[in-house]
Structure formats: C-alpha cells, structure tokens
Computed example of a mutant assay.
Amino acid sequence: MKKPKFSTSNIIFVIVIGLMIIPQTRQPIQVFLQKGLAMISPSEISVDKRETLKSYDNWNLVDSKGNAFDFKQAEGKVVFINFWATWCPPCIAEMPSIDELYADYKDDVIFLLVSNEKAETISGFQSKNEFNFEFYQSVTNAPAQFQTNSIPQTYLIDKQGSIVMDKSGAANWNSDKVRKVLDDLIAAE
C-alpha cells in the first residue's frame, strides 16, 4: 500500500505554520504558549549576590493620566518594576498575574509598569484588558541597574534599595513564592 502524501499530522503542521504566519493569529497563539511558560515562579536572588541601587535620583516617569512620578518617591519602599510592551506576547502572558498581585499589594508596594509606547496605545491596551494597575512611561532614562535589552524585564526591590528579584521573560508573579517574598519585604524594617 502506498502511504498518503497528506497525513493528519502533516495537515495539522501546515495549519499551525499558516496560523503563525498570519499576523492576526500569531500574537494570540504566542501569548497562549507564553502563558504555559509563565507558570514558573521567579527566583529570589541570594542575599550575598544582591545589587543595591546607587541612587533613586534622576528617573522621572508619567502615568497614563499625565501625573508625574519621581522615582525618588520610591526610596525606602518595596518596589515592583516591570518593563513591557503591548506587542510583546510574554509581557501580555504575565500581565494577569501582575494584576492579581497588584490587587492585594497595591497599598504596600509601589508598582511601576513601564512602557516606551505612545500613551494612546497603552491606554487602549489597558481598557481592552481591564487591568487595574497604572502604566508609566519614562520621561528620563532609568537608572543603570535597570537598563535592559529584553522585555518583559522585572525587578523587585526591597526598602534598602537591594534588587531581590531580577527576572527576564514571563513569570507567574502571583505565586505563593512571590507573595511570601513580598510579605517578608513589607514586614522588614
């Protein structure tokens, strides 16, 4: 018997490749795949390897309402910083976990979700997805410790300015592990 040229697995493979080529379907598929990868909780940096911010000066941001935020206001507080973009599938994949974390910690942690996109693009993304946290744009360059070439890039900073978590790529920010770290950082003097 001659084997058919078009087996079921070949047809499925061609369909998947076709969907990845079409721009309208590529991003939802990539976000779906990234959500699977984002189930991993980020790791805490060991105390002896933590880098401390040299300064809180000279980083100014603006939120979607046009309100200015001087990073100096974050000094002495627990800070969650996430660099992201609306077109980035891993960023989109981790946003729901950040939103859930924000819902419980917004009074004790400063959340800075920073994008370099236009305000209209960010606002449209926020409205469409109904995220509750505020998004920011940098007015000046971020401190040297936050210079990155990849997104999403996330930092968790303690009250003394030490970088406790430094995660490149999507992660589950609403995990028990992250919540325990946050609880400890908030309780620390």
Score class of each variant (00 low, 15 high):
Met39Gly: 04
Lys118His: 12
Leu182Trp: 09
Val47Leu: 11
Leu53Thr: 13
Pro28Cys: 08
Glu130Ile: 02
Ile29Cys: 03
Val79Trp: 05
Gln126His: 09
Ala142Asn: 00
Pro96Met: 05
Gln153Pro: 07
Phe69Pro: 10
Phe125Trp: 12
Pro96Val: 06
Gly66Arg: 05
Asp166Arg: 06
Val181Met: 06
Val181Cys: 06
Lys106Trp: 11
Gln160Cys: 04
Pro96Trp: 03
Glu51Tyr: 01
Thr86Gln: 05
Ser41Lys: 02
Gln27Asp: 14
Val164Tyr: 05
Ile12Ala: 13
Asp99Phe: 03
Trp87Gly: 05
Ile21Phe: 07
Ala187Trp: 02
Pro90Asn: 01
Ile151Cys: 04
Phe6Leu: 15
Asp99Thr: 01
Asp104Ser: 13
Asn10Lys: 12
Val181Glu: 05
Tyr136Lys: 14
Cys91Asn: 04
Arg26Ser: 11
Asn116Ile: 04
Ile22Tyr: 10
Phe6Gln: 13
Ala74Val: 10
Gln126Lys: 15
Arg50Thr: 12
Ala187Gly: 10
Ser64Pro: 09
Ser41Met: 05
Ile163Phe: 00
Ile92Asp: 11
Gln73Ile: 11
Ile157Gly: 04
Glu100Phe: 01
Ile11Ser: 01
Glu100Thr: 07
Asp176Ala: 13
Ala68Ser: 13
Ser162His: 12
Val16Gln: 09
Ile22Met: 13
Asp99Ser: 01
Leu156Thr: 08
Ile163Val: 11
Pro23Asp: 13
Ala171Phe: 03
Phe131Arg: 09
Gln147Ser: 12
Ser41Gln: 03
Thr8Ile: 15
Lys159Cys: 14
Ser41Phe: 08
Pro42Met: 10
Lys128His: 07
Ser150His: 01
Asp166Ala: 04
Gln30Thr: 01
Ile40Ser: 14
Leu61Cys: 08
Ile98His: 01
Asn132Trp: 03
Pro152Ser: 10
Ile122Ala: 09
Asn132Leu: 11
Ile21Pro: 04
Ala103Asn: 05
Pro4Asn: 09
Tyr155Thr: 11
Asn116His: 10
Met95Ala: 06
Thr86Trp: 00
Val79Tyr: 00
Asp57Val: 09
Ala93Trp: 02
Lys77Thr: 12
Ile92Phe: 06
Val181His: 02
Pro4Cys: 00
Leu113Pro: 06
Asn149Glu: 11
Phe135Asp: 15
Phe69Arg: 02
Asn172Phe: 03
Leu113Val: 15
Met1Gln: 11
Ser127Glu: 14
Lys3Gln: 08
Ile157Glu: 04
Lys65Ala: 12
Leu185Ala: 07
Asn82His: 06
Glu51Ser: 00
Val139Glu: 15
Leu156Ser: 02
Ile186His: 05
Ser9Glu: 14
Ser168Asn: 08
Gln126Met: 13
Trp173Gly: 00
Leu185Gly: 01
Leu182Arg: 06
Val14Asp: 03
Glu51Ala: 07
Asp48His: 05
Ala74Gly: 02
Lys49Leu: 11
Ile45Phe: 01
Ile15Lys: 02
Ser123His: 06
Ile122Leu: 14
Asn132Val: 10
Lys2Gly: 08
Asp184Met: 03
Leu53Ser: 12
Leu33Ala: 11
Asp183Pro: 09
Asp63Gln: 09
Pro96Cys: 12
Met95Tyr: 00
Val78Ser: 11
Lys2His: 09
Asp158Lys: 00
Glu134Asp: 15
Ile81Cys: 01
Glu44Val: 08
Glu94Gly: 04
Ile110Tyr: 03
Ser64Val: 15
Val16Phe: 12
Phe13Met: 14
Phe6Arg: 10
Ile22Ala: 04
Lys54Tyr: 03
